[in-house]
């Protein structure tokens, strides 16, 4: 018993000493000056994009076109993923048991909390770190715990089908594309932000198109990942038996 305690104390001391030395020796010096490009963004983001959050401004405004093509690539990847699963939802309807009642109760509460936080991430994406993709992924986390706990069949019975999810995804991406294209009508470049969209509505800061992109991107990401998760929960027998469509 005493040897156990001595070893524990030694380990504890060694860890403390190691972490202190590492901090002192490896101390990564913080740069005291910003580089030119960084300085440009820090000084001009708020005026040029009406957003105090430089990362979102870069992603959806300065290099907005790039991000929109990236979203399209992800869309195609998910379409490709879904096309690989040959199945009907009948196979999923057989899985209805899920986990215990207790897991279901806790999952309901946790999923609601995740959804609230995800909404905060999405709607503050143009004001503080966050945005459409992180928020949408957080929603996807909620659906990824709901699917195994409640079983995919139960969700399909409640009216959540992958067809609907893919439709939501398509609609969200169409809306995203429209937000990017609308300025062209007035003769501006594609993905124009401040010269076309208002910086605020009723005094509430929306940073022009940035909050719209965040909203639609989050819907697209959440529904896309949920659809994939739903397909991934097909029982193995359904594949083997060839009961797919």
């Amino acid at each position: 018993m005493s040897r156990r305690i001595i070893i524990l104390i030694l380990l504890f001391t060694a860890t403390l000493i190691a972490s202190f030395t590492a901090t002192i020796i490896l101390n990564p010096a913080t740069p005291s000056e910003l580089k030119g490009l960084a300085k440009y963004y820090v000084l001009n983001t708020i005026n040029e994009t009406a957003s105090p959050e430089a990362v979102t401004a870069i992603v959806w405004d300065y290099r907005g076109l790039d991000t929109i093509y990236e979203t399209l690539v992800l869309y195609l990847a998910i379409v490709g993923g879904l096309a690989m699963f040959k199945m009907s939802e009948e196979a999923l309807l057989k899985t209805r048991i899920g986990l215990t009642l207790l897991s279901k109760t806790s999952t309901k509460i946790v999923a609601l909390l995740i959804a609230s936080i995800a909404a905060a991430i999405v709607f503050h994406g143009h004001l503080s770190p966050g945005g459409g993709f992180p928020g949408g992924s957080a929603v996807a986390v909620a659906s990824m715990i709901i699917i195994p706990v409640f079983a995919a069949g139960t969700l399909i019975e409640k009216g959540v089908s992958s067809t609907k999810l893919v439709a939501i995804r398509g609609a969200a991406l169409t809306a995203l594309g429209l937000v990017a294209l609308l300025p062209v009508v007035k003769g501006l470049e594609i993905v124009t932000n401040q010269r076309f969209y208002p910086a605020s509505i009723l005094g509430l800061p929306i940073s022009g198109s940035l909050s719209l992109y965040n909203l639609f991107e989050s819907l697209a990401v959440a529904s896309g990942f949920t659809a994939i998760a739903l397909y991934l929960s097909i029982p193995e027998e359904a594949h083997k038996g060839g009961s797919g469509a």
């Binding site: 609230s116 936080i117 909404a119 905060a120 709607f123 503050h124 004001l127 503080s128």
Partner: peptide, 26 residues
């Protein structure tokens, strides 16, 4: 109310924008 509280505390602000979006989301 629970959603409202979680949303506002996570956003860490009580600006009119946060409260307005929190009301809609909740």
């Amino acid at each position: 109310l629970i959603v409202f509280i979680v949303y506002v505390s996570f956003a860490g602000s009580t600006s009119p924008y946060t409260l307005a979006t929190a009301t809609i989301i909740s």
